[in-house]
Computed example of a mutant assay.
Amino acid sequence: MKSKAKKQFEKINSDCNLFSQLFVAAQVRNTKLEVFFKHKNHPWPPALSLHGRLRLPSNKSELLHCIDASVQPETPTYFDAKVVDGAAIVHALPQENTSTFSKYSDNIFIPWIERQLQGCSRMDNVWDTYRPDSLKATTREKRGKGLRRKVSRNTKLPSNFAGFLQGPTNKEELFALLTEDVVKHDYPLTKQVYITSGPRVQSNQANITLMGESDHEEADSRICLHVNDALREGATTVLIRTVDTDAIVILVGVFHDLVQHHPRMQLWVGFGTGKHFRYYHVNSICQELGEDKARALPFFHAFSGSDVTSQFSGKGKKTAWKAW
């Protein structure tokens, strides 16, 4: 595979050769230089494309520094509901002392769910879905494909677990196994656990009305459906756990629609991992931004570069925000 620097060198060399040929032709035909430079010499705009591919942003989380509220209330110690990006949690949890996928579920993932339930009454785990024709395919290819390994309860956990999680099929099978175990596990009667399974939602309690099916591919947007359902069921303080800037952007974008129906709601986001973990109070962010900017934030995020749209060359989120 060619390095980025080598591709750039080949592109510049090609541009020089093309420019020389066109310039000579323009001189012979007595073409005006103003007209000559009006014509494009690339099949794609270099400001938005990197060697014919999307110019993906290198640091989406810069946007969070732009919208961060100057003041926010103290983070609650107990929430009515927690909604988590399940894939992000699987990436973050350790795999020490687990030899098989079954032991990973029993000794790592289920105990993590139980610990989270100590600080809330309801917990929703939302998985991504993986479609071969998705716009996200470009971003996933950039992250790598990983080694394929069939997931079953007795299958040995791969030594390179992060590499294993780069494969969409690997993740689908792992998430299905974890979903089955989460639903079957015994929790305190006062605790409700919801977990997605493809387009459907499953729960540990059989006597409750489940959410309808959803065709959302990304957990980032599907999380909003679970937040709305928790609010309709009486929750007021809701924590969303994620590591993706997109999730916060979408929540800010739909905040004013949610607050119209649930004026007492308090939305919090637990973002990041390890020493970079922190809480964002969505109510405070939206109050400082104002309704117009809050609603427009998803467009701004997509326009300035996201997982499926190019950023402008040399123009990051902070530069775009200052211009906005």
Score class of each variant (00 low, 15 high):
residue 4 K to L: 06
residue 4 K to Q: 07
residue 11 K to I: 06
residue 11 K to P: 03
residue 13 N to I: 14
residue 15 D to P: 04
residue 17 N to Y: 10
residue 18 L to T: 14
residue 19 F to N: 08
residue 20 S to R: 07
residue 23 F to V: 11
residue 27 Q to C: 15
residue 27 Q to S: 14
residue 35 V to Q: 12
residue 36 F to G: 12
residue 42 H to A: 11
residue 44 W to H: 07
residue 45 P to F: 05
residue 46 P to Y: 07
residue 48 L to H: 11
residue 49 S to W: 02
residue 51 H to L: 14
residue 51 H to Q: 14
residue 52 G to I: 04
residue 55 R to S: 02
residue 56 L to A: 10
residue 60 K to N: 04
residue 63 L to C: 00
residue 63 L to S: 01
residue 64 L to A: 05
residue 64 L to Y: 00
residue 64 L to E: 01
residue 68 D to E: 12
residue 72 Q to M: 11
residue 74 E to H: 05
residue 74 E to R: 10
residue 75 T to F: 00
residue 77 T to Y: 07
residue 77 T to L: 13
residue 79 F to A: 03
residue 82 K to L: 01
residue 82 K to P: 02
residue 85 D to V: 04
residue 85 D to R: 00
residue 87 A to C: 09
residue 87 A to H: 06
residue 88 A to V: 03
residue 89 I to L: 10
residue 90 V to S: 04
residue 90 V to E: 04
residue 90 V to I: 15
residue 91 H to N: 10
residue 92 A to I: 03
residue 93 L to I: 11
residue 95 Q to G: 09
residue 99 S to F: 10
residue 99 S to L: 06
residue 100 T to E: 09
residue 104 Y to N: 07
residue 104 Y to F: 15
residue 105 S to A: 15
residue 105 S to C: 14
residue 107 N to I: 11
residue 109 F to K: 00
residue 111 P to C: 07
residue 116 Q to W: 01
residue 117 L to G: 08
residue 117 L to T: 05
residue 118 Q to G: 02
residue 118 Q to F: 00
residue 119 G to Q: 10
residue 121 S to W: 01
residue 124 D to P: 01
residue 125 N to C: 14
